[in-house]
Design a protein around this nucleic acid. Structure first.
Lengths: 202, 202
DNA sequence: TATTGTTTTAAACTAGATTTTAAACAGTTG
DNA sequence: CAACTGTTTAAAATCTAGTTTAAAACAATA
C-alpha cells in the first residue's frame, strides 16, 4: 500500500509538471512514464486514461491554489483590508508558481465545454459575501456605489493577466526572472491603490 | 493561377477557424482538409508543414488585428482622448472576434520560445511615443507621474482579460452572448474612467 | 499535338500515441 | 505452503496523425 501511494503520486507529480510546462497535448504518456520512472502501462492502471489523469490534476491544482484566497474573501475583514490581503496573497501565490496562469489560460481554450461543468471551477469566482459587502458599503455611502461583478473582474484582471503574458513582458523589457518579480512586487501597491481609489471617491 | 490563390486561401481560412476554435494541437491536417474541401496532400503542397501553416496564420492574425490599435497609440491625440479611443477600438475588435484572446493565450503557452522571436510580436507592445507622452505629461504636471509600463499593463489587462475568461464569466452569471457583450460594453466607460481617474489626481 | 509546369488525387509510409492483455512479482492470509 | 491480492512489467494491438510519393488531370503555350 505504501508503494502504491508512492507510484500513483509519482505519476501524478510528473504529469503535473509536464502538463504545466509543455501543455497537455504536447505531453505524451511516454514522457510522463519516463519522468516518473515507471512503466508505461501504470498510468492506465492508476488513472485509466490520460484525460482522466488530466482531470484529476486540474481539479487538484485549482483546489490547492484557491482555498486560501477564498477564505480571505469570505472573512469578516473590512473591504479595504480585504482587498489588500487578497491582492497580496494572490500575487504571492502566482509568483511562487508562475506557470499556473498561462497553463490555466491554455486549458480554458482547450477544454471549454468540460471546464464550466467541473464544480471546482466555482472556486475561481468571488464569494457571495464579498459581493454583498460591496453592495452594502455602497448603499451605506462608505464607498462609491460599485458593481461587484465589474469590480471583481477588474481585480483579477489586474492581478493575473501580467502572469499570462509573462514571457512577453520579460522579453520586451529585457527582464530577468528577478526583474519580473520586482515588477510584480511593485504592482501589489499599485493595484491596491488603483482599486481602492476607484472605490472611494470619484 | 486563379485557382491556386483560391485553394491556398481555402486552406488558410479553414485552418484559421479550426485553430482558433479547437486549438492547434487538437486540429488534425485531415480536419483542415475536410473543412476546406480539399485533398489532404494539398496542405503540404502549399505550406510544407502544419507548423509552417500555423506560423503564417498566427503572424497574419496578429498583424491584422493590431494595426489600427498601433495607429491610435502612435497618433498625435492627447493622452485622455488617446486612451478613450484605444479602449474603445480594442474592445470593439475583441467583441467581433471573441476567440482571439483565448487562442492567443493558448499559443503563448504552446510556443513560448518561438513566440518571442517572431518580429510581429512587437505589434503587441505599446509604442515609444505613447510611453514618452506619459512621462512628459507626468513631468509637466498635467497628470500624476506614472510608470508607463505599469500603465500599459493595467490597460491591456483590464481590456483583454475578461475575454480570456469569457466562458467562465458567462457561465457564472448565466449570461447569453448578448449579455456578455453588454457587460463588455459597460466596461468601455468603466475602464476608461478607472484609468483616467488614476492618472489624474490621487 | 506535344510539351511543360502546375495542381490535384489516392495511396503508402512513418512515427508515435494510447490502450489492452497477459504474465511476473511480492507480500499476506487462510 | 498454497491461494490470493494488489502491483508492476513487458509486449503487442490499435489507432491516429503528419508527411511523402507517384501518377493523373489540367491549363497554357509553342
Amino acid at each position: 500500500m505504501a508503494k502504491n501511494k508512492n507510484t500513483e503520486q509519482k505519476i501524478f507529480d510528473a504529469a503535473t509538471e509536464l502538463f504545466m510546462e509543455k501543455g497537455v497535448d504536447r505531453t505524451s504518456v511516454r514522457d510522463i512514464a519516463s519522468k516518473a520512472g515507471i512503466n508505461l502501462a501504470l498510468m492506465n492502471y492508476y488513472f485509466r486514461s490520460k484525460e482522466n489523469l488530466f482531470d484529476a490534476i486540474f481539479t487538484n491544482l485549482v483546489k490547492e491554489n484557491t482555498k486560501d484566497l477564498l477564505k480571505i474573501l469570505d472573512s469578516d475583514l473590512g473591504l479595504e483590508e480585504k482587498v489588500r490581503k487578497y491582492v497580496d496573497a494572490y500575487i504571492d501565490m502566482l509568483t511562487s508558481n508562475p506557470l499556473l496562469v498561462p497553463f490555466f489560460m491554455a486549458i480554458i481554450h482547450r477544454s471549454q465545454e468540460k471546464i464550466t461543468q467541473m464544480k471546482v471551477i466555482s472556486n475561481l469566482y468571488g464569494t457571495e459575501k464579498f459581493s454583498q459587502q460591496i453592495v452594502d458599503e455602497g448603499k451605506a455611502g462608505t464607498i462609491r456605489r460599485t458593481d461587484p461583478s465589474h469590480f471583481f473582474v477588474d481585480m483579477i484582471s489586474l492581478i493575473t493577466f501580467p502572469f499570462a503574458i509573462r514571457s512577453l513582458i520579460m522579453d520586451r523589457n529585457e527582464m530577468s526572472e528577478e526583474d519580473f518579480n520586482n515588477f510584480i512586487f511593485e504592482r501589489k501597491e499599485h493595484i491596491t491603490g488603483l482599486l481602492l481609489k476607484c472605490m472611494k471617491e470619484c
